[in-house]
Design a protein around this nucleic acid. Structure first.
Lengths: 194, 194
DNA sequence: GATAAAAATTGATATATTTTAAGATTTATT
DNA sequence: AATAAATCTTAAAATATATCAATTTTTATC
């Protein structure tokens, strides 16, 4: 599974004198035993509103979206694909029922560990905290960028998507991208034309 | 300084069997030697556009805002006060010039360490990674919530401010809160009236 | 405490974006 | 391959929010 290779080669996004070290063989062995696999069909749910997000999932292949319902319509929060790590941020950290859904937009294969298993690993293998730190920082950075983009007007949000999320433009339906940018799909269509 | 007390009592926001342990006395000693103090007058800057954010600062007292300039006008991204840890997310992680400013809105006292010192501490005192992990998670959670709020219409954003950020409403000028919510101060004023 | 400067409010108008509705494409199903 | 279903596009009207300008209120300065 690509996930061990992935964990072994993680580094800080920016410069750093102290490289993240590969995992000890003990920890690798433990992970191999602990990680479980899950396959999602297209449109299948990984998490639904009201459920508590108990798993951190690594996407081996496929594409997932996170959204919530507002007046019956879904509003997309993010899209993640191969090599990404996903969970519902608020639900997972607080271990409380989720207001958001996570759904596969393409057939997907995941590997996951549970919340309890994660914290046990942090405890038993402190070296893994370094991995957690780098990954949390990575998605924090992304979330910060997302909240930055959302402070801009619709046109500029679309421009940002085109220049920074080119892949989504090809892989994800426009109706999903529209709510991701916080605009209607009709308006999205207009902006695109120009 | 309150910061050591603060670091010694940090815990996960949600439930967890494995409590975060108090710092070893070696690490406490090292921190006491490394932490530097900085006082900011009202309106003084901690970071300006073009600078690289090299410090993680703990707010001992006071209130700071982060903003960027858009067409000559400032757009506020967050406000932090006593007990918070601040830096420019994008600039600090990537160690690249910042597009945002950090400024004191009230006279403030800070303690800080540099980016390099932080990573050296992670390396020499792995136990500190647990602290970094919890703090990063805390602000990731906040950023996630912020990006969630920004996906809602202006009225609801104002409601969110009233119910979840009551303190800001009293401590921060309306013109700053308006851009924080992504609306003009005139419209902010109108919403408030009702 | 008086004056100036900045911030907040209010009104009238302009504009971007949404809503509603219809038609055109594309995708899924038998 | 044919039909149905979903998605995307386009247009006209409605609406929320921004802009501009003037007035009041609050805050800062001498």
């Amino acid at each position: 599974m690509r996930i061990l290779e992935f964990l072994n080669t993680i580094q800080e996004p920016g410069p750093s004198q102290y490289k993240v070290q590969p995992l000890s063989s003990d920890l690798q062995e433990h992970l191999r035993k602990t990680l479980k696999s899950k396959t999602l069909a297209k449109n299948e749910y990984l998490l639904k509103e009201g459920d508590t997000s108990r798993r951190v999932s690594f996407i081996e292949s496929g594409l997932l979206r996170c959204f919530y319902l507002s007046k019956g319509k879904d509003v997309n929060r993010w899209f993640m694909s191969e090599g990404d790590v996903v969970f519902s941020v608020s639900s997972f950290y607080m271990q409380q029922p989720s207001y958001e859904y996570i759904q596969a937009l393409e057939p997907s294969q995941l590997f996951y560990i549970t919340h309890d298993e994660l914290y046990e690993i942090y405890y038993r293998f402190p070296e893994f905290q370094r991995i957690g730190l780098v990954l949390t920082g990575k998605y924090y950075l992304l979330s910060d960028q997302l909240s930055f983009v959302k402070s801009k007007p619709p046109r500029e949000r679309y421009e940002w998507l085109v220049t920074n999320q080119q892949e989504l433009l090809q892989r994800v339906a426009s109706k999903h991208l529209a709510s991701y940018l916080g605009i209607t799909s009709e308006y999205f269509s207009r902006i695109k034309r120009k």
